[in-house]
């Protein structure tokens, strides 16, 4: 039996469960609610895409799931691990089971460490291999992520690798301890467009081979569709829609999800004249295109955030109750939406 198969057992059972996770950042100047009662699960072996524009709280969620940060309220569990209660000594052990792929492959690699050192360390720390075993295993993993020929890459340092190779190394390091869950925070957004598909495909292959689950964070629904089984759409820290990826994409209900879908460039489809474009900035709701409603003032819409629907300021469908109370997720396990004016 190959070493590789020994450690990459595909018997993984840990389920990631987030219940009512809220994160509030308090500064002297202001308080930011980065996440508001976020609830969803990632089943073993599944890829769940977390989609949302810049500032929607994706990275905050990743940091909470991996234990870098504690939620203000709510609970996070991965299998037996009660993540939000871990002390720092327990966190070190927990990280054998959850690993992270960072957005920027350059800054997440220590410029002084070689490829081999980078992969060997988690093997020694988490799996308690000795140096010799760890080296053999690391070469095996380099083959798996196709950093080949291995003898050529083993002693290179990050600055001698291309962007794609660096990200392969980051992935190699992440899969080394054979984790239950990998959190990938925009793993390809800093890479050249031509190699993005390769990296995503690699993650997908590894998922199939090792049985790990993946929380794939992206702002682009298109790549989510290519990768994921399920999708969670986040807007200003609120889950506005979630469910099976095909189901959500083909029957998107929430106006924000629809906006995201329209933002996907589709050369065969004509632009609809009323389409709103998501440009990633929070500041430009297209008021001109929203039909005026007497009882709803501009002020009311912009300040609905605290007690009303977070999307009210940009929504076409906005009605009185949207400013009064927050909608909650309703629907089936396959498809849920959080909107006063839409159901599944």
């Amino acid at each position: 039996m190959k070493l590789d198969e020994q450690t990459f057992s595909s018997h993984k059972t840990a389920m990631l469960t987030l219940k009512e996770v809220t994160k509030v950042f308090k500064n002297r100047a202001r308080t930011t609610v980065a996440l508001h009662r976020v609830t969803f699960t990632v089943a073993p072996g599944r890829i769940v895409a977390l989609v949302g524009e810049s500032g929607s709280g994706k990275t905050t969620l990743a940091r909470i799931v991996t234990g870098i940060e504690k939620p203000t309220e709510g609970s996070v569990t991965l299998g037996e691990w009660q993540v939000d209660r871990l002390r720092s000594s327990q966190l070190r052990v927990y990280r054998r089971y959850v690993q992270m792929v960072f957005q920027d492959p350059f800054s997440s690699l220590n410029p002084h460490n070689t490829v081999l050192q980078t992969i060997v360390r988690p093997l020694m720390n988490h799996l308690h291999l000795n140096v010799k075993q760890a080296r053999l295993q690391a070469l095996e993993i380099m083959n798996t992520v196709r950093l080949t020929p291995t003898d050529q890459f083993a002693h290179k340092k990050p600055h001698q690798l291309s962007g794609g190779q660096r990200q392969r190394l980051v992935i190699a390091r992440a899969i080394a301890p054979n984790p239950e869950l990998i959190v990938a925070d925009e793993p390809v957004s800093m890479l050249d467009v031509s190699i993005r598909a390769d990296i995503l495909e690699l993650i997908d292959q590894l998922r199939k081979r090792t049985g790990m689950s993946v929380l794939y964070i992206t702002h682009d629904l298109y790549s989510a569709r290519a990768m994921a089984d399920e999708v969670v759409v986040l807007y200003k820290g609120h889950v506005v829609e979630r469910g099976n990826i095909e189901e959500v994409i083909s029957h998107a209900q929430h106006p924000y999800t629809q906006l995201l879908l329209q933002a996907i460039p589709n050369p065969w489809k004509k632009r609809q004249p009323t389409a709103h474009r998501v440009d990633g900035s929070e500041s430009a709701p297209h008021f001109a295109e929203i039909p005026a409603k007497d009882e709803i003032t501009l002020y009311g819409r912009l300040h609905a955030g605290d007690k009303g629907c977070p999307f009210a300021a940009r929504c076409e469908l906005v009605s009185g109750e949207c400013l009064q109370a927050k909608p909650s997720l309703k629907g089936t396990e396959v498809h849920q939406v959080s909107c006063w004016n839409r159901q599944v």
Binding site: T66, I68, L91, R92, R95, R96, Q99, M100, F102, D104, S107, S108, L109, N110, P111, N113, R121, P122, N125, H126, V170, R173, A174, P177
Partner: peptide
């Protein structure tokens, strides 16, 4: 990021300070 990554690799504080 690379320091956070070292924590994910299971390194202890002293190692992170002096070796990373």
């Amino acid at each position: 990021d690379y320091v956070i990554a070292a924590k994910f690799a299971g390194e202890k504080s002293l190692w992170i300070i002096f070796r990373e």
